[in-house]
């Protein structure tokens, strides 16, 4: 996954707005295929046990883990897109780390298919789900990184 991180770093500067195909990280969540813009992804890591539960947070917050000295909370992406929960455990799935506005969060996903250029989705929604577009292995749902972050942060505000 190291190459993902370095590619992400290389492409991060400058917002991509044009219609050119942008590089995306493509992964599975509960069997469905999703993608996030590579420029929003800091890195993809395996879950790093031991985990600690977050008090008073939503069930979708799976816990926190120690990522090279930084403590990062991990949110189940399945819960945010309305799918069946995935467990956070050693050796199961991956954690996609997003970094935005000084907020850092990990998103629990399943298998990671890789990085590929994707044409912007036809519908062009602005929320959590940007729309569906064609990828090498079929259709993928493209997620908006900022909206994903906002939705996840809302899970922490206590009850």
């Amino acid at each position: 996954m190291a190459e993902l991180a370095s590619e992400a770093a290389a492409t991060r500067p400058g917002e991509r707005t044009g219609d050119a195909p942008a590089r995306h990280v493509v992964f599975r969540v509960a069997g469905e295929r999703y993608a996030l813009p590579l420029e929003a992804v800091r890195e993809v890591v395996p879950p790093q046990p031991p985990f600690a539960r977050v008090p008073r947070a939503s069930e979708a917050v799976r816990g926190v883990m120690n990522l090279r000295g930084r403590v990062v909370a991990v949110v189940d992406l399945a819960a945010l897109v309305g799918l069946a929960p995935q467990p956070l455990a050693e050796g199961v799935g991956h954690v996609v780390i997003l970094d935005q506005d000084r907020r850092t969060l990990g998103f629990l996903v399943g298998a990671v298919a890789g990085v590929e250029p994707l044409a912007p989705p036809a519908e062009g929604g602005a929320g959590l789900v940007r729309g569906v577009t064609a990828a090498r292995a079929g259709a993928v749902t493209v997620l908006g990184a900022a909206a994903l972050m906002d939705a996840a942060v809302a899970l922490f505000g206590g009850r």
Binding site: Q48, P50, P55, V64, G69, V71, A73, D101, F156, G158
Partner: peptide, 23 residues
């Protein structure tokens, strides 16, 4: 850090010798 600082009742986090994060 955000968003963990929004959780009421937590003041900080530390990491134990075995790597376990502890609130």
């Amino acid at each position: 850090g955000s968003p963990l600082e929004d959780v009421p009742g937590l003041s900080a986090v530390t990491v134990l010798g075995n790597g376990r994060p502890v609130f």
